[in-house]
Simulated assay, not measured.
Amino acid sequence: MTTAAPTDHGFTGLTGWAADLLLSVGDVGIGLLVLVEVVVPPIPSEAILPFAGYLTQTGSLSLVGLIVWSTVGAWLGGLVYYAAGRALGMERAVRMVAATRLITREDLDRGVTWFERHGRPSVLFGRMIPGVRSVISIPAGAARMGVVTFSVLTLVGSGLWNGMLIGVGAALGTEHERLEQYLGHLDLVVYGALGVAVAVLVGRRVHEARAARSATRSSQASPPPPSSPSTSSTPSRGTSS
């Protein structure tokens, strides 16, 4: 494993941060980033892996090492959600992950639907679909898919996806400006996605608070239900003549 000084890359922003980590830690760094990307979206492998591939052409990192470590990172990240689904069951695991606000309930439901529709192949191909690859492990664990089967499908799918993205960067060779332009656009997309996520989170909290206040006012304004007329159990006394 080879490393270079973090200041050698010349990138800035999110890509520059990833470059610093990769050049400081080496091949293992990409595995760490991919692991975090699977567990805590939306760290973008679409930005990190092509840059890592580019670094292999400068002699800073190993092509084989990057593919291996990125695939191991994706597998370990997948095991986190697999274990949650297996231990808690589908609904409880989905509720728990949705409560963290790291992944939306819509994305979780989409992953569940994908798994229910396609079964085992969804674990393989889901690793290549953004928004699905992070959550497909939950229904796989809840369905008690064998850990060996899950691991093989995850390793193969993640290896193909990561290898393709790393290969894109490697194919650019030393064309630093073209890669920087590509990653710069992705930086803007990622920052925009983060901004939208924050706005959605704030809007959801405001909507929930308003709904709770409205429900409270409605319950206070509603008159109590009329009580049923009580009947006397004492028989009426007649008058004597």
Score class of each variant (00 low, 15 high):
residue 238 G to P: 11
residue 34 V to N: 13
residue 185 H to P: 05
residue 27 D to C: 00
residue 203 G to S: 09
residue 101 R to P: 01
residue 87 A to P: 01
residue 120 R to D: 08
residue 76 L to S: 08
residue 195 G to W: 05
residue 49 L to S: 12
residue 225 P to Y: 02
residue 235 P to W: 05
residue 99 A to Q: 13
residue 45 S to D: 11
residue 60 S to P: 08
residue 210 R to P: 08
residue 96 M to E: 10
residue 204 R to H: 11
residue 192 G to S: 05
residue 43 I to H: 13
residue 11 F to Y: 10
residue 239 T to V: 07
residue 145 M to V: 06
residue 194 L to V: 10
residue 59 G to P: 07
residue 45 S to R: 15
residue 241 S to F: 07
residue 164 M to P: 06
residue 38 V to N: 15
residue 88 L to R: 04
residue 16 G to A: 14
residue 56 T to N: 06
residue 2 T to M: 03
residue 203 G to C: 06
residue 56 T to C: 08
residue 21 L to C: 11
residue 135 V to H: 10
residue 129 I to F: 11
residue 184 G to P: 01
residue 225 P to S: 11
residue 232 S to R: 15
residue 233 S to V: 09
residue 214 S to H: 11
residue 224 P to Y: 09
residue 177 E to S: 03
residue 31 G to L: 02
residue 1 M to W: 09
residue 102 L to C: 12
residue 118 H to T: 00
residue 109 D to T: 11
residue 20 D to L: 05
residue 200 V to K: 09
residue 1 M to N: 09
residue 139 P to N: 01
residue 149 T to D: 14
residue 52 A to C: 12
residue 77 G to T: 09
residue 49 L to R: 10
residue 193 A to P: 15
residue 187 D to F: 03
residue 207 H to E: 07
residue 38 V to Y: 15
residue 146 G to N: 15
residue 36 V to K: 12
residue 58 T to V: 08
residue 175 E to T: 06
residue 100 T to V: 10
residue 136 I to Q: 01
residue 35 L to N: 12
residue 109 D to I: 13
residue 221 A to T: 01
residue 204 R to E: 15
residue 196 V to N: 03
